[in-house]
Amino acid sequence: MIILAATPIGNLGDVTTRLVEALGSATVIAAEDTRVTVHLLKALGIENRPKLISLHDHNERDKAAELVELARETDVLVLSDAGMPTVSDPGFHLVDTAAAAGVVVTALPGPSAVLTALAVSGLPTDRFTFEGFLPRKPGDRRGTLRELATEPRTMVFFESPNRLAASLADMATVLGDDRRVVVCRELTKFFEEVKRGTVKELAEWATKGVKGEICVVVAGAEPRVMDLGAGVDEVLSLVAGGARLKDAASDVSAATGLSKRELYEEALKRK
């Protein structure tokens, strides 16, 4: 079978008993960076030296079929450098290929930067969305943020420390200066820092320079107060701009809390 195994995101003490046992008995490990895996084995005092196969973003599509066939004969332990494989890390194509081939896929759960950041953020956790890394190019990044501007759920992003200030500045421009944001730096490590504030405040703070692994947690959009008539006007405006009526009603409903069905039906009457 394919075994996805979560590794510590910083503090080695977060390693699970199941991971230690799996590393001690594994015959094959597919690793994002084999050097990191060798270091992990040594740090944990594990003498087992399994066959290591490199599995990263640039070769995963080519390696997936080979690893799936190997998994028919023996367990293949899959590791990313930190956290759970497939979550902004290699593994998705491998799992997809394994599922299509009828090969069992299981996981050894453990540390997760996404859930850790969400838990300590102080922002709503009942509904959230993980958005991975924002685009590198400013225009693409602002375009992605515009698509998320009315997202009501808490959003979690990964970000490079070198791009953090620019990304927060773009969030201030697109989402508004007062949107609540939490920057989590070096989670579980010695210099862990959780910085909370408005996006404007944190954008200014980040211009001084930030180091380490970064997670950004952003509050969801507050529903706009709007009566049904105004909501229908907005739906029809979106339709006039080329949107499908069903999609326009859905978008306005998400942004305002108005009933999607009522928006659709009333807009249909007025078309």
Rank of each mutant, 00 (worst) to 15 (best):
E193I: 10
P223L: 06
A166Y: 02
P152D: 04
V216P: 10
F190W: 10
F191H: 15
A203I: 07
V174G: 11
L164R: 12
P223V: 01
C184R: 03
A230H: 14
L202G: 03
A206H: 01
V181P: 04
D178P: 05
E159H: 11
D227S: 00
G197N: 09
L168A: 09
V218K: 06
E192M: 00
G220M: 06
V216I: 11
G197F: 07
W205E: 13
D233L: 11
L228F: 11
E222A: 15
V199S: 10
G231A: 03
R163C: 10
G220F: 03
A206M: 01
E213M: 00
T207H: 10
V210L: 02
I214Y: 07
L187P: 05
K200H: 15
K211T: 14
V182Y: 08
L168E: 04
V217C: 03
E222C: 02
A230N: 15
R185S: 11
V225P: 00
R163Q: 09
C215T: 15
V181I: 11
S160Y: 06
T154P: 08
M155Q: 14
E192Q: 08
M171F: 07
T198C: 09
D233S: 13
A166S: 13
G197S: 08
G212E: 01
V217R: 06
V181F: 05
P161W: 01
L168N: 09
S160F: 06
G209L: 06
A165K: 05
P223H: 02
R180P: 04
E193Y: 01
V210Y: 09
K208V: 13
V232G: 09
M226E: 11
G209I: 01
T207M: 08
K208E: 15
R163P: 10
T198R: 11
A169L: 03
L168R: 10
R185N: 05
M155K: 15
L164Y: 02
R180N: 09
P223C: 05
S160E: 12
A165G: 09
E192K: 00
M155Y: 04
P161C: 05
M155E: 04
E159T: 13
I214L: 11
E159A: 12
K189E: 04
V194P: 07
V218I: 10
A203E: 07
